[in-house]
Design a binder for these strands. Structure first.
Length: 105
DNA sequence: AGTGAGCGA
């Protein structure tokens, strides 16, 4: 039946979003960071749009140098949503950063 | 690799 197929594909999409990209979350992926941008700088910039509950800049384990991307988590999804709008493509430490919703870990 | 898309031990 058509209705049955629609329900199945809907369920498939929903479960896929649990594993991969999200269209709404309180956690953001931040790419395009300067290699000099640390977690303090990142927190400072994003806390203008809400309560930041966690910040992380991914660094190489051996060199300790930033990989140029990180994650920012807010206390509310609404805060993440506005931060995403306001911070995407904004200049930070000389680089235009890219903000998206984070994928599932 | 003093580099530039991506998704974390």
């Amino acid at each position: 039946m058509v209705l049955g197929a629609r329900v199945i594909s809907k369920v498939a999409l929903l479960s896929a979003r649990r594993l991969f990209a999200r269209d709404s979350s309180n956690k953001l992926f931040v790419g395009g960071l300067s290699y000099d941008t640390n977690e303090s700088i990142l927190r400072e910039a994003f806390s203008a749009h809400g309560v930041v509950t966690q910040v992380r800049v991914i660094c190489d384990r051996r060199s300790g140098k930033s990989k140029g991307f990180g994650f920012v988590q807010f206390s509310q999804e609404s805060e993440a949503a506005t931060a995403l709008q306001q911070m995407d493509q904004q200049l930070l430490e000389g680089r235009n950063i890219r903000v998206c919703y984070a994928n599932k870990e």
